[in-house]
């Protein structure tokens, strides 16, 4: 049985978008995301909410292997968004990553072109926890951030840390204005790591 989408498509989508916009505009802050959805496992409500708010027939979506292996997930996204699913991460406008520990290298996603850097992939990852600077002290889980949107520096902690990070984020930033933009989600939360953000050692 197909699970329902947004109860109030107009305002739920707007609320999710504003949370994502604030997250990307202010890297290092954690925004509450109103993800009132009950999608088929292993899709999380936050991944589903962002997909429903931002994707449609114009945006190829790439699913990581664990999501792609769940037929219910593909059916749910196809029905509610109409977005074509692609097997090639380089051609995806959005990528949904349920298992960040097995996230492909960021360079495998669309990087955009020098004339049109906006054509790169937005990678959306489902984490267990995201905390801002002082909330969580896990060894090796901290990212110190600087750049546009950040007053001075900021820090966030991620659990689990996606594969190859934070070095992969530094390489991603080094290619600016090319590169992917990442959205990190945890239950009820979203944080943004646009390509403009410098991850300090």
């Amino acid at each position: 049985m197909l699970r329902p989408g947004f109860a109030d498509p107009v305002h739920d989508a707007q609320g999710v978008f504003r949370a994502v916009l604030d997250a990307l505009a202010r890297p290092g802050t954690i925004q509450p995301i109103p993800a009132r959805l009950d999608p088929p496992a292993p899709l999380t409500p936050e991944l589903a909410a962002i997909a429903l708010a931002l994707t449609d027939r114009d945006t190829p979506v790439w699913l990581d292997p664990v999501l792609a292996d769940a037929p219910d997930v593909a059916a749910y996204l196809r029905f509610h968004t109409g977005a074509p699913l692609t097997g090639d991460p380089a051609h995806a406008a959005f990528a949904l990553v349920r298992e960040p520990a097995h996230c492909p290298p960021l360079a495998a996603f669309g990087q955009g072109t020098p004339a049109y850097p906006d054509t790169s992939t937005t990678v959306i990852l489902a984490l267990d926890r995201i905390e801002d600077g002082d909330g969580l002290r896990l060894a090796g889980s901290h990212l110190r951030l600087a750049g546009p949107g950040i007053r001075g520096t900021a820090s966030i902690a991620l659990a689990p840390m996606p594969a190859g990070w934070p070095e992969a984020l530094r390489q991603n930033h080094a290619a600016f204005p090319l590169g992917i933009d990442a959205l990190l989600t945890a239950p009820g939360r979203v944080a943004g790591l646009p390509r403009s953000t410098l991850v300090e050692p």
């Binding site: 978008f17 994502v20 916009l21 990307l24 505009a25 708010a53 931002l54 945006t59 406008a93 850097p117 906006d118 790169s120 937005t122 949107g149 600016f176 204005p177 933009d181 646009p194 390509r195 403009s196």
Partner: peptide
């Protein structure tokens, strides 16, 4: 909205 997110990122 998608254009705005990319605009903010670059």
């Amino acid at each position: 909205r998608r254009a705005l997110l990319k605009a903010v990122a670059v």
